[in-house]
Design a protein around this nucleic acid. Structure first.
Lengths: 202, 202
DNA sequence: CTTTTGTTTAACCATTTAGTTAATTCAAAA
DNA sequence: TTTTGAATTAACTAAATGGTTAAACAAAAG
């Protein structure tokens, strides 16, 4: 037997691949079975329904993603260091999982409630309160400009996520090949923190 | 008879609404027929297939979108004014059509070739060459920092598009209601140009 | 009034798709 | 070696879905 969960894992891997690329409504159970090299009935043997498999994929996509941010954002690093590390880590992670951002954005848009549920079940692990407080402290200390912390966080996320989520569009419009695009993303690892930190300097 | 293209228009409107919200694979012909208040067969009478209706919706989504940018970006405005006007116009437009960004990003991701085709058929109306040249001129004249024009354009798009495309995610994570979010977007109309222009000052 | 032409619908068809069932394979325990 | 129980499959079902057809309908043309 293929015990020790080898089959289950290969199904999960296949489901991840298909769902991340096609989304829930675009994915077919047969595609997943083919990708995993198994019979379609085996999908239902391990996971009961399309919804159930998708839920695990969505959950993992969320976990692979948000938590990696939280660690840095809730750390005790000085603000500017934190921004630099966050952007580097985040762009690197997203580059390694290029389908995740658009997948998450699209599926949350389809059903915002799903995110709310997950956030509750994860006990709001991602709550950038500490980061917001840190920004406010620096403002009061006169170390940085008086900016809206929420706006700043959105800027930071936008500058990291959009180049990955919008890659095919940007490539199409600006006519960039894969090599050019990889270079461009590498540059951003140093340029985006500079821009963000500059925007805070008084 | 409902002549003078009234029916056709109401079908297009319905299709737009459904496709923009659900995407191609998530949309059902029956949903569109119901939304338009007509029989499903009538959809095929006016448009031959799901693909054909979708194509029109995609085309219009692209047209409502890109061209509005081009006008500003290809105008003769001074650089800083251009940035200010572009961001204001773009955030305003996107706010009025909140489903468009994610729809475009998602569908291009599903089939990047579709965009390429459209760009060709639109004879590359959107080519920010003039804007890139303008930035380069300003750099040579020592008026602004030596930045990568492409990176700058990506930053500009990211800061405008992401807050709309990622609205449900941002709302969920930061716990913002509709009123707070609208206010936040209004603030960005003045804050984003400041940030972008600051990032160019030597 | 009748004919003609374009519009709209009810009913239908073929395919796709998620999910089920019953039989089979296979590894390991007895 | 036989038995047992989980893993796997082929074949199937029911519902959904995109698309078609033929008839009904409405309005303009004759």
């Amino acid at each position: 037997m293929s015990r020790d969960g080898k089959t289950e894992q290969s199904i999960k891997d296949a489901a991840k691949k298909i769902f991340l690329r096609k989304g829930f409504s675009g994915a077919r159970m047969q595609d997943i079975a083919d990708e995993a090299g198994i019979n379609k009935a085996l999908l239902h043997y391990y996971f009961r329904s399309k919804e159930k498999i998708f839920d695990q994929v969505f959950q993992e996509a969320l976990e692979t993603f948000f938590p990696r941010i939280i660690e840095v954002i809730n750390s005790d690093l000085p603000l500017f260091d934190k921004i630099t590390v966050f952007v580097r880590e985040y762009i690197t992670t997203l580059t390694q999982h290029p389908y995740i951002p658009l997948f998450i954005l699209h599926e949350i848009s389809q059903d915002p409630q799903r995110l709310i549920q997950k956030l509750i079940s994860m006990q709001n692990e991602f709550r950038p309160q500490k980061f917001i407080a840190q920004i406010q402290t620096e403002i009061k200390a006169g170390m940085i400009k008086s900016v809206s912390p929420v706006q700043f966080i959105i800027n930071m996320l936008a500058l990291c996520i959009f180049p990955i989520a919008g890659k095919p569009m940007i490539q199409g419009v600006l006519g960039l090949d894969e090599i050019q695009y990889r270079l461009l993303l590498e540059q951003r690892i140093t340029e985006v923190p500079k821009l963000l930190i500059d925007s805070l300097k008084p």
